[in-house]
Design a protein around this nucleic acid. Structure first.
Lengths: 221, 221, 221, 221
DNA sequence: AATGAATGAGCGTTCATTCAT
DNA sequence: TATGAATGAACGCTCATTCAT
């Protein structure tokens, strides 16, 4: 399970004890959110989970919504996938790096936390600008790596096309979650899907046409 | 907006008036679900939406959950994408049919209903066996068409590999929803993504290796 | 199970079909009352029990209370214990008749209906004048027999004393219900208690002092 | 009116203020139960009675049923009749003690609380295991004193017979409640019935045959 | 006579939030 | 900081009752 990162300007984050309690609350919040979903996510359950009085939760988070926002930020902050060491590895080709990243993402979606958290986040993003913004920043981050690799693998793609292809690749990978994620109906296919994804998306990046992808492809089909 | 289909064994569908009211409730329920999400989906809002007394909602649906289930079923029943006429068109190649289906799906995800409903459904499926089952049956249905076309386009794939590839294709398409769906942060890229998806996935189906996909691919990468 | 008696001036009691439905409702009402208690006694359950629409129940009984009253009367009407043949038996002494009546009453309290119905009725009588009146008339009826026998067994007792002793005897017997009635915690002692009651109460009637019982006894102790 | 005893392991009894509020709630609950009966016993009425918000009642008692259970226990705990000083009086014979206890019980049943509470309890005991258990423990307590006295008054009775006779005596006394209790139709006869009960039951204990009461008596009648 | 439909009041329960200590 | 206490709004659900057909 990933570790949560406290937002430094949270209330109570000044003293060491405050920081500890903050973490206790956020961890409990994460557990409740993962185990019971957004629908059952409320201060009462969180307080029971971490053994603190309800009043104390509101001391740190003035409202339920504030807690949820802090939770989203904390979870998402912990998610910056560990792509850096993949990128830094000098002995590997861009293709190999691309495949490694794809594999990392797909395998991650086999964890309970990921396969529960993200669908909730996507749903939330329809209602909450805050959730939408957090979601955005997370994926923008991940796409940055993809864009760089795509540029190397397929130099014929222009900047916008690279962005679009990275978006497609990223969304394709995320889309596997509700189907082969932890506990989902095709969960046993996760390894198989991992391989398919790696091959298919690498091939896609290699072969997709140059120029303005959108217009060119529109003509072809 | 799609029309809802009443489950014929719903209670209260005895008289014509009852059936009309049932539909009124389901429509209101759909609206609330789409506009406010699962979190705000409750009988009070539904009753206000359709101008009926709260008690009358429970007359038709004995519990909030029963209403939700009926709603999921009704929405999902209306969703059997209109693939039949695509498949029936004798002048088109399997590749063209495949691309047509891909386009149909991606374009559909640009509608408000789809881009709100499905993420909620995916999140729900983590908690509710019922939602999971409905979700499953819907996608199983859609994949059936894909499997047939994949078999024609790439005859070297065995039955299980076809299933896996169809699953990957379908999930890849669905995965675009939270990113380029209606109102989502990259919504303006929907046409571009549509083209990329069509080309990339067709290419994937064409070129993906025969035999046991999983093992073969595992070896290649 | 005793049969219920319809109040002839009930609505709908005119036609044969009406009478039949009335009985169906009352039987269902009795079952619900016995099986679920006054607290769960409501029109919905009764209607489900007898398979009639709720609207139809209110056709016969304009209100829940009216149904309850009719039920009480119907049950109580069916309860006039069969004392007449005991009293008519010419070969038996008054003592034997008294004991026979005591036994009949105590044994009856071993039935489920009796041991559930009467405590509910006693509780009800605190709140409802109607229930109190029905309860009164039932027991006044039963006491009439006792008073006659007591007069024969112990001629020294004046009219008021006879009434008081009969009241004590009757209440003593009823009091066994919550303790040795059907399903109660000392239910297995019912036969034993029957014998004790028969002997003790017969002895009581025989030996209790003449004159004004109240004053005399007050002096003795 | 008797005082209620708080169950020491009740929730919310942490601070003095909490304990005070708990008592306020229980008192209100008792009043509602006595004045309006089990049928009208609900949290809203209790909250109105004690001037607290409904939510605060559930803060102390998580459910209506928990409140009812606490109420039963509190009322019953307050009921351990004051028999000890009667038993301790060295100048009185067992007969006199027996009569004193009988009088105490019968006179108590002339209070409003008793004559309303117990019939409700007996009815409740048919449905609720909890009520049945509480009822049981209360009466088992009371019978213990009777059994001891019976053993002294009539040494020929074996242990089981003593139990049975005590049960009969206790039930006979309780049985007077719905008839001569406070507000009941024969309430004016309470003093008269007190005397009859005292004499009759003392005589019963004195004269009832030794050996196995059940079998012997069965033979006699 | 009987049904299905509809209403509205009422209650249990949950829960975010406030506040005194 | 932390807790216990208290509030009030909201919601699910039950149910008696009314009414058109």
């Amino acid at each position: 399970m990933r570790t949560l990162r406290i937002n430094p300007d949270s209330k109570g984050a000044a003293s060491p004890k405050g920081r500890q309690t903050l973490l206790k609350i956020l961890n409990a919040a994460r557990d409740v959110f993962i185990e019971q979903g957004y629908g059952q996510f409320n201060i009462k359950r969180v307080s029971e989970r971490c053994g603190l009085a309800r009043g104390n939760i509101t001391y740190y988070f003035p409202s339920r919504d504030a807690l949820l926002q802090a939770l989203l930020r904390a979870v998402i902050s912990g998610y910056t996938w560990d792509f850096d060491h993949i990128m830094a590895d000098e002995g590997t080709t861009p293709e190999e790096k691309f495949v490694a990243i794809v594999r990392l993402i797909v395998e991650d979606l086999g964890t309970r936390e990921t396969s529960v958290f993200f669908p909730e986040l996507w749903a939330l993003a329809s209602r909450s600008d805050y959730a939408a913004a957090e979601m955005d920043s997370l994926y923008a981050d991940a796409r940055r790596y993809l864009v760089d690799l795509i540029a190397e693998i397929n130099p014929s793609l222009g900047p916008d096309a690279r962005q679009a292809v990275a978006l497609f690749v990223s969304a394709s990978l995320e889309g596997q979650t509700p189907f082969v994620g932890y506990g989902r109906s095709h969960g046993r296919r996760l390894p198989q899907i991992t391989n398919i994804a790696a091959n298919a998306l690498l091939e896609t990046v290699r072969s997709i046409g140059g120029g303005d992808v959108g217009r060119q492809l529109a003509a072809r089909v």
